[in-house]
């Protein structure tokens, strides 16, 4: 089963927003193919009727009441920004 499937590395890397060189693509896709081949062993298990575990110790209704807590100062919020102007973060023009 694993030999048939090959990760579409171009599609997946783009989805993950990571540029890869051709050499990286080649190396990664073969490594990932072998990892994917390995994890496919889960298919052996019959899990019909088994509830998925999303949290190890699930509880319901964990919330806070609507009471305002303190904010970061604008200076602190932006101190790590790669580019800022007028207290806002500068990004290349995006087409909306």
């Amino acid at each position: 089963m694993s030999e048939e499937k090959h990760i579409d590395i171009d599609y997946t890397a783009k989805l993950a927003r990571i540029n890869l060189t051709d050499a990286e693509k080649e190396k990664l896709s073969s490594q990932l193919d072998s990892i994917i081949g390995y994890v496919e062993k889960l298919e052996e298990l019959d899990t019909s009727g088994v509830e998925p575990t999303a949290h190890p110790h699930p509880v319901y209704n964990v919330w806070q009441e609507d009471v305002v807590a303190s904010e970061l100062s604008i200076e602190e919020a932006l101190k790590n920004a790669p580019a800022q102007r007028d207290n806002m973060i500068v990004v290349p023009k995006v087409v909306d």
Partner: peptide, 19 residues
């Protein structure tokens, strides 16, 4: 992300994106 992440992080992020 290509510049900021190392090889193992890229590998796992791409694997996680794939699954």
């Amino acid at each position: 992300r290509a510049e900021g992440f190392g090889e193992e992080v890229k590998r796992r992020v791409i694997l996680g994106t794939y699954v």
